[in-house]
Design a protein around this nucleic acid. Structure first.
Length: 957
RNA sequence: GCGAGGGUGCCGGAGUGGUCAAACGGGCUAGCUUGAGGGGCUAGUGGCUUAGUGCCUACGCGAGUUCGAUCCUCGUCCCUCGCACCA
């Protein structure tokens, strides 16, 4: 077997030497195709997951190239953001896990300390990634690749321009923002920096202030402001330490954790003393509706949740109700805290909501349904809490108590409709205020539990602006989406996006030009860089073009991208010659907008949507994105890729082991559409063999064979045309897996059948066409193999630069005839099996009577018209004198035809006879016996009557 | 919960109102290749049945629309992704 890696080496060198894929804008009238894909993050080598996404633009790029487009496949290396800095710090600290990651990648022990400097990552990985991509044979012109970060000054200038533009349009505003925060490190803690609590987010609670007689407030936290009128009492944990603090000038009693968190949420907090929960028991507080309630002891209260104080709504909280019941039964405890037993026992749930199927005291119904007996059944109670929350929120309605309590009559209204209003008014009346807490426990890598901090002076991109949203929708509307069904998701996301915190206090990135304290966050700086790419070579390799750049200010980018100002003015400030400025401007206009961008589906709700917003903000409509493709994630042998499972592969090691073409083909064949794809290692093995065969086949058969053309040759010609047509169709709609099938697997199948039919006696012209077309169709997927075979058959140019083949003629009759032969083979086999004859001496085949063909044709015509009435069809058929003679047979066949909704494929007896005659020797050879072919009407054999158009009757002996 | 997508053979996956037991790939079984190495070829791979190429059953589950549904409608169960300030 050929070594495909050597093959790849050879052609990569050739392409390089001849600069086969160097991008040039020679003729601005030439049609162009500009492909982009989100750049990989440079904290490691790229892996199979990256490759799967990148195989789309790569295959399409090569396909478009062969179609005569001037193609630019953009590639960048992502370095902004926090992960690189974080990883570098961990190397600095010699953290074993991080060191291990580098080692596993094959970085030499002695080189590892270099990675303590973030700059080293930014230097090292882009270089190596480019190698990997080239090794895979990607159609990338490296002059058009670039790194993101301030370490690349021209890119940095570009991002400043982008943000100044956004600011000028009022899309960037200052505000407050809750984030998960480490109180020790004093930084926000993203998912990747957490020791525990990935996926937890800030959640908005309300603090309820319950006033004691002495003016102090006992403060509880809740998500259920809808039940505010159902409060019957408060619960404290008798043994927990609470603190008394001056919060925004008021005396509050709250848990210690909440006191800490409040400080980070913009409140002034001064703790004055600590008190035990039991000190509060028996006191009374005044509620929102003016009622007074008792403070009672309960042990389910968790000091780490909310304020560590709970207001009790036993009608709609199972926890509260069961705790109340437990307490009411527990006379000892009541006495211990000097509570009035009768008074406590008289506390009853106050109905506030009507919950379908659960009545007006939903908590009670819920407890009974789940047979809860004690507040100690924590797990069950937690489940009930969630369930009840869900049911109340979506199905419950407010009762009469809500008629006048708020500015609008809420009686009978669903809870989810009234909740916002209640919140607003409770806050206005100073009974409540917002408070944030993580949705679950979050622990920083430094092992400190995290809180929610409300960051002040944060900069936001105002994606919630309705006018901007409309623009983004307009942009989406004019785009092609692959697959189209992702449109709904995009529409939803565009509406859902709120303002986006676009700056960070640390990380690699461009400084916010007007507020240098902040660094632009990486999802925000990557939304427009496709434009930068079009001129990247002229900025990053200015020396090659004979000038040195002085400064790039906003006027420069305004000129290049928006055509504002004059080249002459910018020549001075930038140091770039006028003609180069003009060239950049024109080339940008030539390449832009991008025609294609794709990513895995997880970027839909951020990057891909942001890109739409940013384009509409800065570019005029003609420069808006043309299409998006959204792909699934890649699995390996149907399992999620993961290092622990041992199915994690870097592109590097795959290339090393199998060579690029096998991997490219397998990746393209892994799947299409939005569902997760499957990289099948079994296919990898099969592909190795199949690809070697392609080269071998070309070498063996090209320019050999007979001169005289036969029927079966015509069949292969038709099949070749089918494959061309199908492959083209599939590539046009970005269906790679389907394209692999039509461009390769179907072709190979046709060849196999052709070989069998001709017994290897090929027609020279036909096999030549087959080989040439096969190599061209394969080129986008396996360019090295194609190139190798192309030259093996004596071609001197690159197949990569050949025009994409055009489908010639089609001939359904020929295809049908061949299908008849194939079906006949299958049927003969079945008959032989049924008749228990292993070695037949003679096979007689009866081609259906002429009238059956006529009947089939008429039936199909009627069926196509929608006719399903037995009698009508029969009458119609019998109008034909020829058919009338066979009325009895027709009445037998007809019901089945009607049931199937389709008649047998009508051909003509003459054609079927000819096709069978043509294949006679072939069938004889296949079964090693004599074959006779007879028209059914010319025979007295009873079985001959079983023949139908497209199905011969068979007698074996 | 919300939004989106999906549930088809031993597996991956086509099909999207009729000729389609289900393309294409993989796996498995049998036979052949008269000869060794995960090679090639042929046949088979839902059930039942058969002097004959047939019949029945199936596309998560239940109901409906239709002459006819894997494909449309409704209900139900299950799975995947996302729900953010993070690349």
């Amino acid at each position: 077997m050929l070594d495909l890696k050597t093959v790849a080496d050879r052609w990569q060198k050739e392409w390089e030497n001849k600069k086969a894929f160097q991008v040039e804008v020679k003729d601005r009238k030439q049609k162009k195709y500009f492909l982009t894909t989100p750049y990989p993050y440079m904290n490691g080598y790229i892996h199979l997951g990256h490759l799967f996404t990148y195989i789309y633009p790569e295959v399409i790029a090569r396909y478009k190239k062969m179609q005569g487009y001037n193609v630019l496949f953009k590639f960048g290396f992502h370095c902004t953001g926090t992960p690189i800095i974080a990883a570098a710090n961990r190397i600095k600290e010699k953290e074993p896990k991080q060191t291990g990651i580098l080692k596993q990648m094959g970085i030499a022990e002695k080189d590892i300390p270099k990675f303590a400097d973030p700059q080293h990552w930014v230097d090292y990985f882009p270089k190596e990634t480019l190698k990997d991509l080239k090794r895979m044979g990607f159609l990338i012109d490296e002059r058009y690749t670039f790194r993101t970060t301030y370490l690349n000054p021209t890119y940095d200038a570009f991002i400043r321009w982008q943000f100044n533009k956004l600011k000028a349009k009022d899309h960037v505003k200052k505000g407050k923002h809750p984030v998960i925060w480490c109180p020790k490190d004093n930084v926000p803690v993203g998912d990747h920096d957490r020791a525990e609590g990935e996926g937890e987010t800030p959640q908005e609670f309300l603090l309820f202030k319950h006033q004691l007689d002495d003016g102090r407030f006992v403060v509880s936290a809740t998500l259920r402001q809808d039940t505010v009128l159902g409060i019957t009492n408060l619960f404290v944990h008798p043994d927990i330490q609470y603190c008394e603090a001056v919060v925004d000038g008021e005396q509050w009693i709250i848990g210690e954790k909440a006191a800490l968190a409040l400080q980070d949420q913009g409140h002034s907090v001064k703790v004055t003393k600590h008190i035990k929960g039991k000190e509060l028991i028996g006191k009374r507080t005044k509620e929102f509706d003016g009622s007074h309630v008792l403070i009672l002891p309960a042990t389910f209260v968790d000091p780490n949740v909310g304020t560590g104080l709970v207001h009790s709504v036993p009608s709609d909280s199972a926890d509260d109700l069961i705790a109340l019941w437990d307490l009411q039964k527990d006379e000892a405890t009541l006495r211990k805290f000097h509570l009035n037993v009768d008074e406590v026992r008289s506390i009853k749930p106050i109905p506030v909501l009507n919950t379908p199927e659960y009545g007006d005291v939903a908590a009670e119904a819920m407890l009974k349904k789940n047979k809860v007996t004690s507040q100690q059944q924590r797990q069950l109670l937690d489940e009930i809490k969630k369930e009840l929350y869900r049911i109340s929120h979506y199905t419950a309605t407010f009762n009469a108590k809500y008629k006048h309590a708020f500015s609008k009559n809420l009686e009978g209204k669903p809870v989810h409709e009234g909740k916002e209003l209640i919140k607003k008014e409770l806050i206005e009346k100073k009974f409540a205020l917002p408070y944030y807490e993580p949705t679950g426990k979050v622990v920083c890598r430094c092992l400190t539990p995290c809180i929610v901090k409300v960051v002040e002076n944060q900069w936001f991109l105002e994606y919630n602006d309705p006018t901007w949203k409309n623009e983004a929708h307009a942009c989406l509307d004019q785009m092609k989406l692959y697959p189209e069904k992702v449109r709904k998701q995009f529409d939803y996301v565009l509406d859902w996006l709120d303002h986006w915190a676009c700056t960070r206090e640390y990380g690699l990135g461009t400084q916010l030009p007007w507020d240098k304290h902040w660094v632009i966050e990486s999802l925000s700086d990557s939304t427009l860089q496709m434009a930068y790419c079009t001129i990247a070579p002229y900025l990053e390799q200015s020396k090659a073009y004979g000038y040195a750049i002085k400064t790039l200010d906003d006027a420069f980018f305004d000129f290049i991208f928006l055509g504002k100002g004059t080249a002459a003015a910018i020549e001075k400030s930038s140091g770039i010659p006028k003609h180069m400025l003009e060239r950049m401007h024109e080339e940008f206009n030539y390449w832009y907008p991008f025609d294609f961008r794709n990513s895995a589906k997880d970027l839909v709700q951020n990057h891909l949507s942001f890109t739409l917003f940013n384009h509409t903000a800065i570019f005029p409509k003609p420069q808006w994105p043309k299409s998006y493709l959204v792909n699934g994630r890649v699995m390996v042998n149907n399992e999620k890729m993961s290092k622990s499972k041992g199915n994690f592969f870097t592109v590097r090691e795959l290339g090393e082991k199998y060579g690029p073409d096998v991997i490219r083909l397998t990746a393209a064949n892994a799947g299409e559409g939005i569902d997760d794809a499957n990289f099948d290692m079994a296919f990898v093995e099969a592909a190795k063999k199949k690809l070697s065969d392609v080269i071998e086949c070309a070498q063996t058969h090209y320019n050999k064979g007979r001169a005289q053309e036969k029927g079966i040759d015509r069949w292969l010609q038709v099949k070749i045309n089918r494959s061309i047509s199908e492959a083209t169709k599939n590539l046009d709609v970005m269906l790679l897996k389907s394209a692999v099938k039509s461009a390769f697997l179907d072709m190979q199948r046709s060849l196999a059948w052709y070989t069998r039919r001709t017994k290897g006696d090929f027609h020279k012209e036909t096999i030549n066409r087959f080989i040439e077309v096969q190599l061209k169709l394969l080129t986008p997927f396996t360019p090295h193999v194609s190139e190798e075979a192309w030259h093996a058959i004596g071609k001197k140019n690159f197949v990569s630069l050949e025009p994409w083949p055009e489908a010639g003629f089609f001939d359904e009759g020929t295809e049908q005839a061949e299908e008849l032969i194939e079906a006949t083979l299958t049927d003969i086999n079945q008959v032989l099996k049924l008749a228990k004859i292993e070695k037949p001496k003679k096979i007689t085949l009866f081609v259906a009577e002429a009238w059956k063909h006529t009947a089939a044709e008429t039936m199909q015509a009627l069926l196509d018209q929608g006719e399903r009435d037995f009698k009508k069809i029969l009458t119609e058929l019998l109008k034909n004198a020829e058919l009338k003679q066979h009325a009895q047979d027709i009445t037998k066949i007809l019901p089945r035809v009607i049931k199937n909704g389709a008649a047998p494929h009508a051909s003509s007896q003459r054609k079927e006879l000819a096709a069978m005659q043509d294949a006679k020797t072939f069938i004889e050879r296949e079964f090693s016996c004599t074959v006779e072919i007879i028209a059914a009407d010319k025979s007295t054999e009873p079985k001959a009557k079983q023949s139908m158009p497209g199905k011969v009757a068979i007698v074996v002996a």
